[in-house]
C-alpha cells in the first residue's frame, strides 16, 4: 500500500508539472498580458513597457518558468497581478464557498443514489426502477446552466425569494448563506445524480445476482440487512470512486453556476484570472485544482480499499 501511494504521488507530480507547463505555454500564446490589461485604452507605449518590466513580462519564457518553480518549491504561489493580493490567500478565501458547495451537493446526490439505486435494483423492472431510470436519463442530460437559469427565474421572479445571488458568509448570517447556496447545491447535486444513480443501480444488480447472495438468503439473513449492508458493500467501490471524481471536479469550481448565482467561488476566480491575464493566479488555481483531483482520487481509492478490500483499487479507478 505504501509503495502504491508513493508511486501515485510521484506520477501526480509529473502530471502537475505537465499541466503547469501547458498553462505557461497557453498563456504565452494567447494575445494580451497583465500589463496591457492594466494600461487599458489609456497610457503610452513607455508606460506599457515600464509595467511589463515591473511584472517581469519582458523576460523570456524559460526564465519566467524557472522563476515560477523556484517560488513554488518554497511553497510560494506568488502575487496576483490583478488583485495585488497573495495568490494562496485568494484561493483560500474561495474554499469557504467551494468546499461546502461541493461536499453538500455530492453528499446529497450520493445518498439519493444509494437509496434509490439499491431499491431500484432490488425491485428490478418495477415502478421505482422505471422512475429511477427516468431520473438517471433526465438528470444526466439537463444542462446545468439551463437548470440554473430556470431555478433563478422560478425563485427570483416568480416566488420573489430574497437573497439569491447575494452571497453572505455563514459567519455573518447562516440564513443568508443558506439562501445563497441552496439553489446552486441543488443544481450541482442534480448534475451528479445521473451517472451516480446509474452506477449504483447496475453494481447492485450485479451484486444481487451473485452466488453468495442466494446462499445468504437461504441461510435466512434479513432482506434489508442483506441489501443495505452486504450487497451494498460489494457494490460500492465503483460509486465511491465516481464520487471522488465528481467531488474533485466540483472542488475545481463550477464557473458557470457560480457566475449565474453570483457566488465568489474558485471557478469564477479562474475565469476572471484568465480574462485579466493574471498569470500567477491562473497558474496557482490550475496547480491547486490538479493537486486536488489527484488527491481526491487517491483518498477515494484508499476508501474503496477499506470498505471492500476484495476490490482492486486499480480496476475501480477505471470504472
Amino acid at each position: 500500500m505504501g509503495k502504491y501511494v508513493l508511486g501515485r504521488i510521484a506520477s501526480a507530480l509529473v502530471v502537475m508539472l505537465l499541466v503547469s507547463i501547458l498553462t505557461f505555454l497557453v498563456l504565452d500564446l494567447i494575445p494580451g498580458n497583465a500589463a496591457i490589461v492594466a494600461v487599458g485604452v489609456e497610457g503610452s507605449a513607455e508606460t506599457l513597457a515600464r509595467l511589463e518590466a515591473g511584472l517581469g513580462l519582458d523576460r523570456s519564457l524559460p526564465q519566467r518558468i524557472a522563476d515560477y518553480y523556484r517560488g513554488l518549491i518554497s511553497l510560494d504561489l506568488g502575487t496576483s497581478s490583478y488583485y495585488a493580493q497573495d495568490v494562496w490567500s485568494l484561493i483560500k478565501q474561495r474554499l469557504g464557498v467551494t468546499i461546502p458547495l461541493a461536499l453538500l451537493s455530492t453528499a446529497i446526490s450520493f445518498s439519493c443514489a444509494l437509496i434509490l439505486g439499491s431499491l431500484a435494483a432490488y425491485r428490478r423492472g418495477g415502478l421505482l426502477d422505471g422512475i429511477c431510470r427516468t431520473i438517471v436519463q433526465l438528470a444526466g442530460s439537463i444542462p446545468s446552466f439551463w437548470l440554473s437559469l430556470l431555478l433563478l427565474i422560478l425563485f427570483s421572479s416568480v416566488f420573489s425569494v430574497a437573497g439569491i445571488g447575494d452571497y453572505v458568509p455563514p459567519s455573518v448570517s447562516i440564513r443568508g448563506y443558506v439562501t445563497a447556496v441552496f439553489l446552486p447545491v441543488i443544481v450541482l447535486a442534480v448534475g451528479q445524480l445521473g451517472p451516480m444513480l446509474r452506477l449504483v443501480r447496475s453494481s447492485m444488480i450485479t451484486s444481487l445476482g451473485e452466488d453468495w447472495y442466494a446462499s445468504a438468503r437461504v441461510k435466512g439473513l434479513g432482506r434489508g440487512r442483506l441489501i443495505f449492508v452486504y450487497a451494498l458493500r460489494h457494490a460500492i467501490s465503483g460509486p465511491l470512486t465516481l464520487c471522488g471524481n465528481q467531488l474533485a471536479k466540483l472542488l475545481g469550481g463550477t464557473a458557470i453556476v457560480e457566475s449565474i448565482f453570483s457566488l465568489p467561488g474558485l471557478g469564477r476566480l479562474f475565469l476572471t484570472a484568465v480574462e485579466m491575464r493574471d498569470l500567477q493566479l491562473v497558474q496557482g488555481i490550475v496547480i491547486f485544482i490538479t493537486a486536488l483531483v489527484v488527491l481526491m482520487n487517491l483518498v477515494f481509492d484508499i476508501l474503496v480499499h477499506l470498505v471492500n478490500p476484495a476490490a482492486d483499487s486499480r480496476e475501480a479507478g477505471g470504472a
Binding site: 502530471v15 505537465l18 499541466v19 497557453v26 500564446l29 494567447i30 475545481g252 484568465v274 490550475v286 483531483v293
Partner: peptide, 18 residues
C-alpha cells in the same frame, strides 16, 4: 497515460482560448 491525465486535468476553457 500521464499525458492523458494532464489533458483531463487541463481546463477546457484554456484550451478553447488558446
Amino acid at each position: 497515460m500521464r499525458l492523458a491525465d494532464a489533458l483531463m486535468a487541463f481546463p477546457t476553457i484554456l484550451t478553447a482560448l488558446a
